[in-house]
Design a protein around this nucleic acid. Structure first.
Length: 419
RNA sequence: GGAGGGAUGACCGAGUCGCCGAAGGUGAUCGCCUGCUAAGCGAUUGUGGGCCCUCAAAGUCCACCGAGGGUUCAAAUCCCUCUCCCUCCGCCA
C-alpha cells in the first residue's frame, strides 16, 4: 500500500510512482479522494462525539430525567446512522484508488521497460554452447522426464530423477548452510495460505491468475516462500533492536504460468512446480538499502561459487513488480541460447508490503514510537533453474557431467558418467 | 467427520450493558534506596487517525477487547454469522 502522505509531499516519491506506470491523473484522483474521506470522517466523528456525550449524560441523570435525555440521544443516533454509510463509501473509494498505485521506483532505478535495464557488472565469459542443451541433456542423462510427467499432470511438469535429485539436495544443503552462517533462520513454511495472506503479501488481486487455488478457494498454493515468510510477523510490532530479522525459506513453489504459452518450453526452465530457497529480511528503514546490497552479495557469491558466468542488472521501473521499489536480477549465461537468463533476483519492497502486513518496529528508548519495517526478499537458489545451468556449464565433451566443487561434499560424487 | 471449550493490551490474566481503553501481574523505561549483584520502593508504559499547533510535546476528539453484522440512548459484556485455536472421539503419514 502506497504512502499517501508522502505521495502528497514528496515530489521524488510521486515521480517514482509515475515511473512505475501510475498516471498523474490517477495520483491526483487518489489525493482528492483522500481529502474527501478525511472531510467525511471529521463530520461523522464530530457527530459521534455529541452522541457519546448525550449517552453518558443518561447514565448520570436521575431516573425522572432519563426519558427526555434518551429521546435526545435517540435523535442524534438517527442522524448518525443516516450519515454514517458515507464514511465506508469514501474509504472504499480511497482504497480502490490506492491499491492501483504501485510502490514508487527508487531514484537509482532507470526509467523505462523490460529492455531498459542497466548492467551493473559482468563476471565471467560468454562460453560456447555444449553438445546438448539443458533439455536434451537432462533427457539423455535421465535427470528430467517431462514426457511421463505430462501423462499424469500435464505440460510444464517434470520428474526430476537420479543424480539430479542428489544435486538438488546438495544445493539445498549448501545454500541453507551458507544462509544460516549469515544469521538467517531456516524455515520450512506452510505453502498453502489463506486469501488474506495472499492479499497482504501483495500478490492478490494483481497476480491472482498465476496462483493455484485449492479447497474450493479457501487455500492457495504459494508461488514462493516469500508469501508465508512475509506473514511471520503479520500484525506484529517487533523490537527495533532485533532487526534485521532474516529468514531462509525452503519450499516448493507453484505457478500457473498463465500467458506464457510457447515460452521457454524446453526442459525445466519454466515449470509449474519447483523447489526454492528464499531469503527474506525484515529491516529498519534506515538500513534497507544496505540490506538490499547484502542480499545481492549473497546471491552473487552463490552463483559465482557454482562457477557460473553471470551479470547483475538493475531492473527498470516499468518492469518492476507492483511492490518493489528496486530489483536486481542476476542473470547467468545460458550457452545454448547464447544469452543471459535470470537465475535469481532480490527486491526491496520498502514499507509498501509492511503497510498491509501491519508489521512495525518499536524504536529504542523510552517513548519511542513505532514505524513500518522495510521488507526485502531474494532468491538464494531456485533449484531447478540452477540445475539446468549446471547441465550446460558442467557438461563434458565426453558427455559426462562434472559436479561443481562446492557441491561435491554434499552429494558424495564428483562426476556423473555419460549415458 | 462428531461433541464440547475458548479468542481481551508486548506477555499472562480479570471483567455479563453506562463508573472499562479496560483491574491485577509480568516485562520495559525513569527515579529512589541498599558500598557491588539480587531484592525493595515510587512513577511512567497500547495502536491507528483527526483537531489544535510553525514542528514536537501537552491537550482534546474518534476508532480498536479475533472478524463482520445486529439489538440498545449506551456493548469487551446480549444476539447472529464467519475465522482461528484448544480438548475428547473417529481417521491418519
Amino acid at each position: 500500500m502506497i504512502d499517501v502522505r508522502r505521495l502528497r509531499d514528496d515530489p521524488e516519491y510521486r515521480n517514482g510512482a509515475v515511473r512505475k506506470g501510475a498516471s498523474p491523473e490517477a495520483i491526483d484522483a487518489l489525493l482528492a479522494s483522500d481529502d474527501r474521506r478525511l472531510a467525511v470522517r471529521q463530520e461523522i466523528e464530530a457527530l459521534r462525539a455529541r452522541q457519546n456525550a448525550a449517552s453518558k449524560e443518561i447514565a448520570k441523570a436521575p431516573a425522572a430525567d432519563r426519558p427526555a435525555k434518551i429521546a435526545v440521544a435517540g435523535e442524534l443516533k438517527a442522524e448518525l446512522s443516516a450519515r454514517e454509510p458515507l464514511v465506508a463509501l469514501a474509504e472504499n473509494e480511497f482504497r480502490e484508488l490506492a491499491i492501483r498505485i504501485a510502490n514508487p521506483a527508487h531514484p537509482s532505478v532507470p526509467s523505462g521497460g523490460a529492455d531498459d535495464f542497466v548492467v551493473v557488472k559482468t563476471v565471467g565469459g560468454e562460453t560456447p554452447a555444449p553438445a546438448l542443451d539443458h533439455a536434451d541433456y537432462g533427457l539423455r542423462m535421465g535427470f528430467v522426464d517431462g514426457e511421463r510427467a505430462v501423462r499424469i499432470s500435464g505440460s510444464r511438469f517434470a520428474y526430476l530423477m537420479r543424480e539430479a535429485v542428489l544435486l538438488e539436495l546438495a544445493l539445498v544443503q549448501w545454500v541453507t548452510q551458507r544462509l544460516v552462517g549469515h544469521g538467517f533462520v531456516p524455515v520450512v513454511p506452510p505453502v498453502l495460505v489463506q486469501e488474506h495472506m495472499m492479499e497482504a503479501a501483495g500478490f492478490f488481486p494483481t497476480d491472482r491468475s498465476q496462483v493455484y487455488d485449492v479447497d474450493g478457494g479457501e487455500l492457495f498454493l504459494v508461488g514462493t516462500a516469500e508469501v508465508p515468510l512475509a506473514g511471520i510477523h503479520l500484525g506484529e510490532i517487533v523490537d527495533g533492536s532485533s532487526l534485521p530479522l532474516r529468514y531462509a525459506g525452503i519450499s516448493p513453489c507453484f505457478r500457473r504460468e498463465a500467458g506464457t504459452y510457447g515460452k521457454d518450453t524446453r526442459g525445466i526452465f519454466r515449470v509449474h512446480q519447483f523447489d526454492k530457497v528464499e531469503m527474506f529480511s525484515y529491516c529498519s528503514p534506515e538500513r534497507s538499502w544496505e540490506e538490499h546490497e547484502f542480499l545481492l552479495s549473497i546471491e552473487e557469491s552463490i552463483v559465482a561459487d557454482l562457477g557460473l558466468p553471470y551479470r547483475v542488472i538493475v531492473v527498470a521501473a516499468g518492469d518492476l513488480g507492483n511492490p518493489a521499489a528496486k530489483k536486481y536480477d542476476i542473470e547467468a549465461w545460458l550457452p545454448s541460447e547464447g544469452c543471459y537468463r535470470e537465475v535469481t533476483s532480490c527486491s526491496n519492497y520498502t514499507d509498501y508490503s509492511a503497510r498491509r502486513l501491519g508489521t512495525r518496529l518499536r524504536g529504542e528508548g523510552a517513548g519511542a514510537g513505532t514505524q513500518l519495517v522495510h521488507t526485502l526478499n531474494g532468491t538464494a537458489c531456485a533449484i531447478g533453474r540452477t540445475l539446468l545451468f549446471i547441465f550446460e556449464h558442467y557438461q563434458q565433451s565426453d558427455g559426462s557431467l562434472s559436479v561443481p566443487e562446492v557441491l561435491q561434499p554434499y552429494c558424495g560424487f564428483t562426476a556423473v558418467p555419460a549415458r
